[in-house]
């Protein structure tokens, strides 16, 4: 069983080494790949020093393209399972182990770590969303649930584990603009087993959220358009049969 853990990173030189160390502690067997999304700081160098493999995109392409790079690498190099987490130290590697266990036990094709799932235990220092964020979250939650007829609580989670079926799908189709939501919709539409697992997440180590009210509104609008269009995409499984 070969496992790849990849970490999309854009200008995260401050936290990347710590995240790699964390992953290595809890997943000593896994290979670690940092997808450097055109960073202009020392992210790639720090990652190499920490002993991770580095795939550097020559220019910033956005989270979707970075994640797809990870899936593509996992697929090409014949990994059996892969997982990814954010580079800002928000995701404890301990929880990634639990996500991967679901995939290796073949209980699901794609497992998402959910911050808001009722089972998630809140501890001091744990993640709590701001008000405008919570509105966006519930809007997406509602529409994604409507679109997929499956209950999702955390639609924008950047912590996931996946098997080869998902690698194959995501390395071919992955929206560069609306990575998380559209990919969930796509996976469910293609008949993959998608599961949510409650996880503990930490407050962002540094930096602030990019969302202002206007941007949130635009973000939500764009997301709804993407979801609507996604409903009309052809299902591959049907086309093959």
């Amino acid at each position: 069983m070969r496992t790849l853990v990849f970490i999309p990173a854009w200008n995260e030189e401050a936290s990347i080494a710590e995240v790699i160390g964390d992953v290595r502690t809890y997943l000593p067997e896994a290979d670690i790949l940092v997808v450097d999304d055109g960073s202009v700081d020392a992210t790639a160098a720090r990652a190499r020093e920490a002993g991770a493999l580095v795939a550097s995109l020559p220019f910033n392409q956005g989270l979707g393209a970075a994640l797809q790079t990870g899936y593509l690498y996992a697929l090409r190099n014949a990994y059996d399972a892969c997982a990814h987490l954010d580079a800002d130290g928000q995701h404890p590697a301990e929880e990634v182990v639990r996500l991967l266990a679901e995939v290796t036990a073949d209980r699901a094709d794609l497992v998402i770590g959910s911050r808001y799932h009722s089972g998630a235990v809140a501890e001091s220092g744990d993640y709590r969303a701001s008000f405008s964020r919570r509105i966006g979250i519930s809007v997406f939650r509602f529409f994604l649930t409507l679109a997929t007829r499956q209950r999702f609580t955390d639609t924008t989670s950047g912590m996931r584990a996946a098997n080869r079926r998902v690698m194959d799908l995501f390395s071919r189709h992955y929206s560069p603009d609306f990575a998380e939501i559209e990919s969930l919709q796509l996976a469910v539409r293609q008949g993959l087993r998608v599961e949510e697992l409650p996880v503990r997440m930490l407050e962002r180590a540094g930096g602030t959220s990019f969302l202002t009210p206007v941007r949130s509104a635009f973000f939500i609008f764009k997301g709804l358009v993407v979801l609507l269009v996604g409903q009309f995409r052809p299902r591959e499984a049907e086309a093959k049969q």
């Binding site: 795939a55 550097s56 020559p58 790079t69 690498y73 090409r76 190099n77």
Partner: peptide, 11 residues
Amino acid sequence: LAQERAIERAG
């Protein structure tokens, strides 16, 4: 193209 190049180098 960018992804292929990044993957090749990581490989």
